[in-house]
């Protein structure tokens, strides 16, 4: 095997490179690096931050979609799930799937209760909240607002 490798290596001949050329090459390269060194630590921190940001954005997006679906379409999801549980009743491991589906179903029902509770809470809280906001809007000194605005600065 080694003999064969040696034979094949003879096929290729490399023209030697003068040492001066290599030295100049290395010097030029290192001069470029010295002129523009890279802050690797900063770069890796930025990359980590970017990764975290992307993860957060993605999870927020998924949560938003799920929340919207459950909020506005929980009835449809509920009916769909019930249909699926009925459909998979006969298949192997169907009971496990049914258990899982029932668990989700229970959570969905809980979610519906939570939604109803939030609606009721909003009905109770919305009027007093509107009142408080109106008071702030009416009694807040307009002069202060003018002082802080950029109109005067300009």
């Amino acid at each position: 095997m080694e003999k064969e490798n040696l034979q094949w290596s003879k096929v290729f001949t490399d023209k030697p490179i003068p040492k001066a050329t290599l030295d100049i090459f290395q010097a030029q390269l290192m001069a470029q690096i010295a002129a523009n060194p890279i802050d690797f630590r900063g770069e890796s921190q930025l990359a980590a931050r970017r990764k975290c940001g992307l993860g957060l954005a993605f999870s927020l997006m998924i949560t938003g979609v799920l929340w919207t679906v459950l909020w506005f379409g929980s009835e449809v999801v509920l009916q769909g799930l019930v249909f699926l549980i009925k459909m998979f009743a006969g298949i192997p491991y169907g009971s496990e799937l049914q258990q899982l589906g029932l668990g989700v179903l229970e959570n969905l029902i809980l979610f519906q209760d939570l939604r109803n509770m939030l609606y009721l809470l909003w009905e109770v809280v919305s009027w007093p909240l509107l009142g408080v906001l109106s008071i702030i809007a009416v009694f807040r000194v307009p002069n202060n607002l003018y002082k802080k605005s950029t109109i005067k600065e300009a």
């Binding site: 490399d14 490179i17 090459f25 290395q26 390269l29 890279i38 630590r41």
Partner: peptide
């Protein structure tokens, strides 16, 4: 070491690989 900030250490890698790389690129 280079990633820790010792940029001059890159010269060691350049010295080691410049010749075979140039032959390969030829």
């Amino acid at each position: 070491q280079i990633l820790a900030g010792r940029h001059e250490q890159y010269a060691v890698l350049v010295e080691g690989y410049q010749e075979p790389l140039i032959h390969f690129l030829r």
